[in-house]
Design a protein around this nucleic acid. Structure first.
Lengths: 259, 259
DNA sequence: CACTGTGAATCACTTCACAGCG
DNA sequence: CGCTGTGAAGTGATTCACAGTG
């Protein structure tokens, strides 16, 4: 009764993994495993233990085994996992057996860099079209792709079966672009603009914000400085600061690799 | 690995008013609140309810109140939060009362874009130095900053009190760069290279991997496609799965915000 | 009376520890 | 015997629901 997951039975007969509903946390780690596996292949291995793969992916082995067990994995007790098979499994689950077409909107500083990024191609995606709202940028060619005007999105989205959009515009334009993407049938968005997007519930949004990442690091810097007895951190502003009544012993935030 | 040994156990040196140790999940959301608050300020507000701020930040109000309560927040019952005060609080907790110096290593495609990104400056950071290993790139000027050779890192790191490093090199170079950063005294790293970094336990690493984000979206695309249409579970006998009832309300990705 | 702050309940994820298989 | 796969225990985060306050 603890599990809402219906399977659990040893019926391993199904050699085709229909999509189980994986925990989100697991889904987020599968790509990391995949990368590590490809790396192992290049290094000439063809099997790997949970311990070994876990180390390569920066997680602990129990977590890795649990994750793989969710996709009905095929390890061999006493031996480990067949790398090629595992790659196939994970790629299937992640929907990478087809190369997905991606539209990139906003060809500024960051957009240029993304358009030129080779990692997309090698990891299951194809940048199928570039868009910008600025007529001055339309027509420019990057990496063999011509920048189109955003208003032409619906046409190309259909033509290229684009289901994923990447927003690399300024924040002020992002919501509008998101609306246009959704109207064009896009159901997954990767948003680099520092703002929250409102979208219909069938659309998934993931967000990458550089400043937020730095601010999280800053918090830990601040904490470390405070812990190591550097009381004299001054902000320049009037150092009024509520004593923040707290006593909890320090939980060891695991740092170091990954996680 | 889970050993926590803070640099020399601080033998309970009395009660230095330390930072509360916030839940990681809360820390990760504070920057988002901060951004939303600045936005509200620009819109002319000076107080906001938990409901209002939650909407602006894309979370629900209970979560927001719980988060703010962790930092001993100052709301007024019946009214809401004083925006200016809240901004000050959050900036203090995140260690943003000082403008932190950041070193950017790897001035390729992405590095260029990051070097030119205005968002750093406006959100508490200052890119203090650019580095690359390629002599051909050394000397180039971007945004008023000259690209230095990576071997000069120790000198500038000390000069500029750099505590945060951003790695935008190819994966093959990233570990080496990380080692150099650590040797130069950097204790927080933001890694854009698609690989796992090994660092001492007192160093924090956060990772941004574009391909991973897309692969996670791909999973959801795949799932949606399987749920909504595709009837034929290609597949053999037995092991398939129940059609996953109910549309999942929220799967961890951002999804339909707005209330 | 509308709002915050918070214990209590719930849910999700991680870790443990070991049964059982190759 | 070494390793995977997994119940069960443990930990952390979210949500609920309401007491209490300005």
């Amino acid at each position: 009764m603890s599990q809402q997951r219906p399977t659990g039975t040893p019926g391993r007969a199904g050699h085709v993994p229909a999509l189980p509903d994986l925990p989100e946390a697991t889904v987020a780690r599968l790509p990391e495993y995949l990368r590590a596996l490809h790396h192992l292949i290049e290094a000439g291995h063809d099997t790997v233990s949970s311990e070994g793969l876990a180390a390569a992916a920066g997680v602990n082995s129990a977590k890795l085994r649990k994750d793989l067990s969710h996709l009905g994995s095929y390890g061999t007790r006493g031996v480990g996992y067949d790398i090629a098979l595992l790659v196939e499994q994970i790629e299937f689950v992640l929907g990478l057996t087809q190369r997905r077409a991606v539209a990139l909107v906003g060809i500024g500083n960051l957009g240029h860099a993304l358009a030129g990024y080779a990692g997309f191609g090698s990891r299951g995606f194809r940048i199928a079209a570039l868009f910008d709202a600025d007529p001055a940028r339309v027509g420019e060619e990057i990496n063999g792709l011509v920048v189109r005007h955003i208003d032409d999105l619906p046409r190309y989205a259909a033509e290229e079966s684009i289901a994923i959009g990447v927003i690399a515009t300024p924040a002020a334009a992002a919501q509008r672009v998101a609306d246009q993407l959704v109207a064009a049938g896009v159901t997954s968005i990767l948003n680099f603009a520092p703002c929250v997007l409102a979208v219909p519930e069938n659309v998934d949004v993931r967000k990458v914000d550089l400043a937020i990442e730095l601010q999280i690091l800053s918090f830990h810097e601040h904490r470390k400085a405070t812990l190591t007895g550097l009381p004299g951190n001054r902000g320049g502003s009037g150092g009024n600061f509520p004593a923040l009544p707290r006593a909890l012993p320090d939980t060891g935030t695991q740092e170091a690799v990954g996680t």
